[in-house]
Each structure stands twice: as structure tokens, then as C-alpha cells.
Design a protein around this nucleic acid. Sequence first.
RNA 1: GCGAGAGUGGCGAAAUUGGCAGACGCGCUGGACUUAGGAUCCAGUGCCUUAACCGGCGUGGGGGUUCGACUCCCCCCUCUCGCACCA
Length: 916
Amino acid sequence: MPRYDAKRIEPKWQAFWDQHSTFQLGSIDPSKQKLYVLDMFPYPSGAGLHVGHPEGYTATDIVCRYSRMRGRQVLHPMGWDAFGLPAEEYAIRTGTHPAVTTAQNIETFKRQLKSLGFSYDWSREFATTDPDYYRWTQWIFLQLFDTWYDAEHTWTGPDGVTRTGKGRPIAELPIPADIASQGQEAVRRYQDKHRLAYQHEAPVNWCPALGTVLANEEVIDGKSERGGHPVERTPLRQWLLRITAYGDRLANELEDLNWPESIKLMQRNWIGRNEGAEVDFWIGECGVRSAECGVEEEFAAWKSLRAKSGFPKEPSPDVLRIYTTRPDTLFGATYMVLSPEHPAVDRLTTPEQRAAVDAYCQQAAMKSDLDRTDLAKDKTGVFTGGYAINPINGERVPVWIADYVLISYGTGAIMAVPAHDLRDCEFAEAYGIPIVWVVETPKGYEYSKEELAFPLERKIDVLYPFTGEGRAIHSSIYNGLKTHVFKAKITNDLAENGLGRKAVNYRLRDWLFSRQRYWGEPFPIWHELDANGQPTGLMRTDDAASLPVRLPEMADFKPTGTPEPMLSKAPADWLFQTTADGVRLKRETNTMPQWAGSCWYYLRFADPKNDKQFLNPAIEKACLPVDLYVGGAEHAVLHLLYSRFWHKVLFDRGLVSTCEPFQRLVNQGMILGEVDENGRAEKMSKSRGNVINPDTVVDAFGADSLRLYEMFMGPLEAVKPWSMKGVEGVSRFLARVWRMIADELHEDAVRLNPAVQDVTPSAEQLRVLHRTIKAVTNDIESLGFNTAISRMMEFVNEFLSIEVRPRAVMDPFVLLLSPFAPHLAEELWELLGHTTTLAYEPWPTWDEQHLIETEVEIPVQINGKLRGKVKVPVNADQPTLEAAAKSDATIASQLEGKTIVKTVVIPGRMVNFVVK
RNA sequence: GCGAGAGUGGCGAAAUUGGCAGACGCGCUGGACUUAGGAUCCAGUGCCUUAACCGGCGUGGGGGUUCGACUCCCCCCUCUCGCACCA
């Protein structure tokens, strides 16, 4: 066996690591530094591992192996995100239970991962589908259910930071006297409205093809993220998690995280915090029905009442509450728009407009998100016939309905200022609504492309719509104020008169948390039923001690075809029970979304076998947070936002001691298919037939080659094309490493190459070694694996040409190689005469002494162009360098007959003569 | 449209603070060894010009700062990703 034979070496060492539990991290020793390195755990699909998986996994494996050798205690676990649709869809087609498919797929994934030699602590492995795990997922849900958000509460957390806003136990929710006086049931309903996990009926994203509703984050361009099926809007009673309560903290606390700026930005944009004001427009008891009818006295009465009572928390029925980020344009509001679903539409609509309004609302209700975006260019709407009164100037403004206003954002109603808003302007033009200019365009203002391209005639002496900031005009006493001053002042004035208030809005919506599928965590929730078997709306929870609520066995997995959850077909003994006090209960039949399990798995890895607690507090303090988290960017606003949200709730409830779960995040770039003849590389996909299976690569070249190649392709974060030739290249390199140390001439057995001898290395050899140690160490620290590998290639190129290779140089080199190609390294380590694994050998260190060179070659430029090189002592000073440069034959000849205007000498770097 | 990131040989890429552009690998060319080579080894390989040396050009394009720019500044082009009626 003379040749480098991955097929012999790799299984041998994988078995060794297994048998010796080499990478099992026992209990944490607080006196040693810990490092928690986490991969985004995979969904074990039927297709098996993809070459994209080992990219991030190899990177983290290198960091872990390196860190162990640096003496850190490394927590490096792996598990399975195993709930989800594909297993259930497969069950529908074949009748195979999702649990069976899932177990098979996990087995395949695990075999594949093991064949790549990753140093996971497999003793911590679990799947989100394990009842011992989802027991605690349900338990955390109960914590969310037991928590309300106190936005005013100021407190100092275990991290020493003082915050305003905290999730607190529901028992601490103050109950208003009028609610308390109505009895226990009213109190329970009041509490239910304030929980972080609550039920709410609203139009949701219903996907008929998938047979479930989806979160906003899972809908892209009106289609499901998974499968690309159309998504409809249907009103349904669903579970929601109050993530919006944490909007500010989710946005602000990104600041200190070592995450890619692009991901932080995506999260901030997704949260979409903006500040503005809420303003009430008076509409009277049944709406201001015409432009003429006299309501001035009533309006005046309302206004003076408001001046005394202040701005109510909830809008009263006699007003339309709007949200605006530009309260300074209140004088330019020439109409209002309600979303078609707005509750006041009915009251405002006049008999003459009734038919048109009803027709429009009906049409809007049927429109899916896709339709709405498709029609984004053409704004439509209908006049309700009603008017509202602008609180600032008492003017009547017509109220319209239009689907460009969304019920789910702000208050579902806007004041429209066509002079200063692109959408309002477009709408006003289409329906002939007057336009009032209230912000003067500053002189020299450069219009945005959008403003310039606006397809309207310019009717005023200035261009419109103008959406920038300027000085106020046509705004009564506010004339002349700059926009930001005006905003603050009018918001304050409105608040003093009880007509408005400062308000913050988020693009982020509460997280729709229920699904109608089978293969997910059941909710630990029961619904109380009345004598007729109808839900009363009151709920009970399962005892924490009785968890998990296991999934029931099902006869068939056919979807119901309606938004009725799959579990409604569960056996009656699972669905119903009667309490000791005689209350009939029905189980919640929705299941949790796939994200639930992945929201907290990183916590469980620290303490995976604990059957008393979701996580032991002492272990939590010792292991968390995750120091390095590597995965794809596709989770930027899904998993990574949801996880942070749960973590913050757990933090508020004193269950974890850090406010953020993932200190450092790195996104590995996607691996594309091979470059085609047009020089283009495309995404790997079954339909393109360019998917690379890691198994075939391991079979042909070995795991070390696959690992090394994926790291050598380019920077970890970069998108890069696959190349089988490239794998061959690194495979050749490993064969060269083998030949450098092992003997290939003898067929009988593996022996040390006779060139490897116990001799003292030369200064030059030490220089090469220490240069390599330094470069590889620094490159691993900065995750620059591609350049680390090229450094090792340079080393091997040097030493292959040397007849006698000192063992004292070969030993440390093998250690440098070991995080990258662990199997080969272990084999060579053994061959070099060592009897234990190198996994915990001290990482080689470099000595600057060995790096010092006596002579260096310095480039000499004339007018900035390279004209020659001179060899000088490494510490040559300026005059020496200049003299050496001038005395160089080629430089001297080029300088002849020219005047040196200036000489730039950077010692140790270069010399430049500026000549005329 | 808005936001972010990126453009370097035939290809993947590298380049401390502005200081020798193209390390390392693939591919290609020539050679050695071989029954054979898709093994291995040696030499060469940015482009143009040249027998060769020399020389000229060269980091998407254009301008600028500088003794000196892949690197800093301004304008433009292309590609990738994210968002997209959010008031």
C-alpha cells in the first residue's frame, strides 16, 4: 500500500475517533476557556447531503479542531431540524409515516456526515421531532403564553444593561378595575389578549396546495417560499406570537453583534421601524355625510372635549385614526383613504355610494397578494360619500377606500397628501382630487429619479410630488418651519389638544405561529367547550409536568382540503377530555411551524439529556452564547429573527443570561454548478442535472479531498462554482503530502519515507516552517481557509524538492494540516511514530526569530514604474538603499542623462526615483 | 424603483497601513520517465510586439488625489442578493 489511499485511511480514523469518543465534550470545566461553534442544523431531506452542507461544516470543523489544539473546550454539536412538510407530503403519497421517513433520512445524513470526518460531539445529537425535545419546545411555548410585554417597565438585566420594556409573567399584568369588576372570565379574556402567544382572527396567507397557512416571511411575491404555490388571503382564527413587541430591541440589539452588515441591514429593514404620529379625524356619530351639512358646532364640541380628556388609547367610533410619518403635511391632506377592510367603511358609506363601495370591497377581498402586487401600478378606489374633519384646520376631507392602503399596517387608514407623496399623488390625479402644496422645495434641490420620472403634468410652478424636506407653506401659523422642526411641534400641539400623539410603527407583523399540518409540535393548549360543544373562547394549558403532548397516531395523512387542521381527524381520546370540575375540553388541533424547533436548539445542545429542565442554568452560563454560527444567508429574516425573539423572551423571564444567542455569524456562500461553455455557473438543481453528491466525491477522491477542495475554492462567504478538476488538484496535493512523509517504493507495508530523518533543520528550513505556521494560524483565525491551504502547498512544494526532510519540521506541518485533512494527518502522525491522536496536540507556534532574513530584494522604480531590483541587507537604511539602487547597472543606465527631481525611499519596501 | 455587495489572466482566485499585480490551484504548451498515460517529475504560461533581449499595455469604463492606486475620492456601466403600494 504505497500510494495515498483515502479509502484505507479514512474509515480507519473515523472508527478510531468513534471508539475513543475523541470529540466528546464531557462536563465543562469553568477554569478553561470555552468555544461554542454551531452549524445551522440541516433538515434531513430524502435527497441526502448536498455539497453545500459540508462547506460550512468543514469551516466550523477546522475552527473546532484548531481550537481544541489551542486548549479550548469546544462545544460542537449536530442535530436534525426534522419537522416539516416534505416528510408529510411523502406520507400523503406513499402512506409511510413521517416518523419512519424522518428516521431513515436522519440515518442517511448521519452516515454521510460521519464519512466526512467532522469532529462533532455525537453524544449530544437530537432531532426536533424527538418527544424528549419537543416536550421542551411546548414548554417554551407555555412560557410565551404565560408572558405579556410591559412596554413601560424599566429594568436592569443579568447582562447589566438597563432596558425599557420587558416580558413579564401574565399574573403581573395589571387588570383595569372595570374588567376586574366583571368577574373571573372577563379577567381571563383580558389576559389572553395580552399574552405573547395569542389567538386572533385576521386574513392570513392560506396556501391550498400546501394545505396550511404561512407566515409573512414564508410568502414571496404572493407565492409560498416552499414550492412556489399560490397563496390566498382568508380570514382565519390563528395563533400569533407578539414579535412586534420586541421590534425595538430586535433592531437595537443587533448593533453589537459580530454579524455581516448585510444581514443586520436585512433584519432592520424587515423590522422596518419608523416614527410618526397618530391623528384622529372627526367623523361624528354616523359620519359626515356631505360637503354641506352643518357639523361645525358638533366638531367644535368634540374638540373641546378632547382638549380636556386627552387622546384616548383606542380610537372612539366617532373618529378615523390615521398614522403618518409626515404630520407636518397635515394642511395638505385633501382626502383620506381607508383600506377596504376598515371597520368604519360601513358607517361612512352613503346610500348613493353603497353599491359601488360594496362591489369594490368584495373585489378587494378576493384579491390575493399576488394580484395586489401585479396591479401595483394602477391605483383604484371608490369614494364612500362620507367626509371627515381635519383636526388642525376644521376642513372637510372626502373619505375614499382603496386597496393601496393595507389594513395590517398602521391604523389601516391614512390622510392623503398628494403634493408630497407619490402614491397619493398618483391616486389624486386619477380621480381628480385637489392637490395642496405645503412644503416648499428648497432652492437647488435635486429631485430624485422617482420624482422626476413621475408621469404627471406639472400644474404648480414647482415640480410635484415633492417628498423631501423643506420649509412649510400654506400651513397657517407653522409657515416657514423646517420639516423636522414642524414635525416635532405639531405632534406636540396635537398631543396637548388630545388630537394626536407620537407613534412608532413597524413593517414587522406579529408572527403567525399555527399550521394545519400533522408533522409539527402539537400545542399544549385546550379549548373550553360550552354545553353545545362550542368553544367558549377560554383556554387551559397542559401541565408542564404532563408534557410532551405527543402527536396522535393517524389513519391517513390526506389533507382536509380546507383550513381545518389535520389533527381535527385525530382519535377522540386525543381530542377531548373532561376536567375534574366537569368542563369539557377540546385540544388545539393546529401544530407549530417548522421554525419552532429551530428557535432554541442551540440551547438544548448545551444540556441535551436534561429531563428536569429545558436547560440547566449553570450549564447555560458556562456554554452560551454561541461564539460562532455558520450557515446560509437564506435564514436572514426567518430563523435568525425568530430565534433572537425567543431568546429575548427567555432572557426577560430569567431563563437565559444573555440577551443575544449568536455572537458571531458567518454566511457561507452558495456553491454553484460547474462553469459551462459560456463561462456561466448556475445554481445546482435537479432540473438542471448539475447536482454534485458528496458521496460520489468521497468515493472518487476521499473526504479529505472534498473538505480541502471546498475550503480551497475561494473565500467562505463567496458564491463560487464547483469544479471536479479542482477536487483533483487538491487531491494531488494530498498525495504529494503523503509522498513527502510516506514511502511509496515499497509495496509491502506503510513505512516512513527514508528522506524523513532525525536531523537538525537548517535556518532556511525553519524559516519556511515558521512562515507557514504563522500564515496558517492567522488565516484560520480570520477564516481565510483558502489562503491557509495555499501556504501549506508552498510548504510542500519546498520540501518535496529537499532530499533530507527533518522530522522536526514534518511533525509540526502534519499538525497544521490536521484541521483541514484530519484523516491523512492522523495517519501521517502515526507514521511519524506518535501513538496517540493528534486531536489534542498543542498547536505549533512560530518564532519571529526564525522569520528574520538577512537580505531582501527591494524593487526600484523610476517614475513609479518597476525598472529593477536590488539585494540589500534587511535593515539597510535610506542612504544605503538609495546608493544600492543607483549603483545597480540597469537603473544607472536608465538614470543617465536625467535629472532626479525627487527620491522616495521606504526602507525594507521600495525605492522610487522621480526624474525629468 | 429602493437598499446592499461585487467586477482582477482561458478558469477558481491572491495581494499587512496606498509600495514588485496575478501567490496557490485548474487548464494549456513543451520535455523526461514509461508497453501505455487522464500516474509522476521538470520547464514555461497576463496581453501585444519580438527569434530573443528590450519595449508597450494591463485589476469593468472615464476622470481625480499621490513620487506611487486593485487599494482613496467623483461620475458611469454590468452582475448578484435583498426589499418592493409599509403611509
